[in-house]
Design a protein around this nucleic acid. Structure first.
Lengths: 339, 339
DNA sequence: CTGAAAGCGCTTACAG
DNA sequence: CTGAAAGCGCTTACAG
């Protein structure tokens, strides 16, 4: 990049010292009004803006927040990223984005990079592989360097760090209770992300809601696989064998697949079968039929996590870990119309 | 952040000069093998990694690429971002992400930020507002500072900068030709992003393909609005009035809406009506019916744009603007089954 | 082969 | 009120 004007050059032009220019521009009370005015005018004229790299070196900070998302296909993470970006920008931080692609190795590689002093704080949602192998050393390492780390979304995990997520268990509990309150009992669960702790929490919510002398709990109704083919086959089999009345679905893919397979079998949503799914507001309403969904307020998750991280960066007091669980909300659309 | 070990400290521990340590670690041939070995061992032991901020200050570069996406709800941009992130990381750049939210004001604010020397290069897709108001000064400004800018996706725009996008016109031309080749003639177009230049290009492709003595061209078949309600209403009216045989849809939202409204009217896809849409591979195949789509290879767009930018950063020769138009591909799924 | 010195662009304690 | 100096953590031309 062609060098923009520097303090030194301004100082030379004005016949004052670099210190004076710096102080003038930074509103130090030491400098006379007149000098301040002269300096500011020239700075304006030359479109001066300070070199952030130099400032950061001096301050021993980077002005950056690093965010690691496991994947970006899921619109949920895209939305969260939107919330993070907005809040980071408002707080004066640049957002460095990384995508781990659900791989532990990539996640480690990224964390190595960041450990070169690239960021003042880290927002992350661990990769699926990290979670299944429970390999957290590379994450804890940052606490040694006093770089704060805030986890988001995938927080049902045995790791003592600040966390921001949603009431995974309660959300599905509520969804199932709602369906039961309408007199339904043959309620299945479909999930393509079983390896994640949050899926387990949601399944626990399902089980807790189902547990009831009047509701048959059937293990077959728990349809879990992260292979699309297998999931479809299992789901098809359950539909053939049982007169299912409703499904709760734990992720966008299982939601779409469930809706698709039900219709493939000439069954009608919502007349024959209801659905409540974890799926995004950006397309749930536009599907046919539109799918009632659990709104996680992803933008809010991003903003909340970022605010917490910024607080940690600015006040690095001996911290007590925070665990923020945000409420979800069921949005009723076509797939839960009762008549 | 707690200070990691520095060159100076290593030098002290080893009783050599800072220069020697620096050179040893950077593989300079000047230093004796023995010294290099001693230095590297100690560095390893203390987990030394150089402070990138200092290196960047010295090098007068930032090691950052800034990317500005107009929105992140559209999974297309999420995918492109994925491609960019991957390529940037491979090339040794950090990716600073910004989202303009389709707002010119926000875009300007972001560009102001970046102009503080935050990045060595910029990847951007202009906001809708920027494009409609044709306000490009804030973009050209960077060329003055010799910071390269590469535009992606929204490239049907009167601005002379490097661009990477797809064959918007050809893609829709091909889609319509395909439908015509199957004997269809009542082919409509649905679009919720009419304000974008690329939509105009796609519409041109439609018109060019339709223009044919045997195919009735009807202005009513061009259904364009960025208001969901209006679009739905228009589409419904056309469906009621004409025996439409197919639609090409220019964006994910219009694709979903078209599919939804057709089915709402008890028409069958693909038996009654075919669809080919600009919609993402991450969910097109899982819809019911699945929607045949124009694959833009978004990851490839991101990678190509990043490679071009990195080239520009590294070889800032007097440049001739490049205009990369990538080929799209029609992926046939349920919605174009003929029998 | 090794090191002292200058410098990247800033900030700030200190002296005057 | 102003400025000289030191320093953030590095690299590199230059001297020895």
């Amino acid at each position: 990049m062609r060098s923009k004007i520097t303090l030194k050059e301004l100082a030379k032009l004005l016949n004052v010292s670099v210190s004076t220019v710096s102080k003038s521009l930074n509103g130090s009370p030491e400098i006379s009004d007149n000098t301040v005015k002269r300096v500011k005018e020239l700075a304006e004229l030359h479109n001066y803006s300070p070199n952030l790299t130099a400032i950061n070196l001096k301050r021993k900070s980077t002005g950056n927040i690093a965010v690691i998302v496991p994947n970006i296909s899921n619109t949920f993470f895209a939305k969260v990223l939107g919330g993070i970006e907005n809040e980071a920008r408002k707080s004066g931080y640049q957002l460095i984005t990384y995508i781990s692609n659900e791989s532990l190795a990539v996640e480690k590689q990224i964390m190595d990079l960041i450990s070169n002093g690239l960021a003042d704080g880290i927002l992350m949602s661990v990769s699926a592989e990290t979670q299944t192998t429970q390999n957290y050393d590379h994450i804890y390492r940052f606490t040694e360097y006093e770089i704060p780390v805030v986890l988001f979304d995938r927080i049902n995990i045995d790791i003592t760090l600040d966390k921001v997520g949603v009431d995974d268990m309660q959300s599905i509990y509520n969804a199932v209770q709602y369906l039961k309150s309408k007199g339904l009992s043959k309620i299945g669960l479909v999930c393509s992300i079983g390896e994640l702790g949050l899926a387990q929490a949601r399944i626990d919510g399902y089980k807790a809601a189902i547990k009831d002398p009047n509701t048959p709990f059937n293990n077959e109704f728990l349809i879990v696989s992260n292979d699309n083919e297998v999931l479809s086959k299992k789901l098809g089999a359950v539909l053939d064998k049982h007169n299912m009345e409703a499904f709760v679905t734990l992720d966008y893919l299982s939601t779409l697949l469930t809706s698709r397979i039900i219709q493939e079998k000439q069954l009608n949503i919502p007349n024959d079968i209801k659905i409540i799914g974890y799926v995004n507001e950006d397309f749930a309403p536009f599907l046919w039929p539109s799918i009632s969904y659990i709104d996680q307020h992803p933008i809010n998750i991003g903003e909340t996590a970022t605010k917490l991280l910024v607080k940690r960066i600015k006040e690095p007091q001996p911290k007590e870990v925070e665990d923020k669980v945000l409420k979800t909300e069921i949005i009723h659309l076509d797939s839960t119309i009762f008549n």
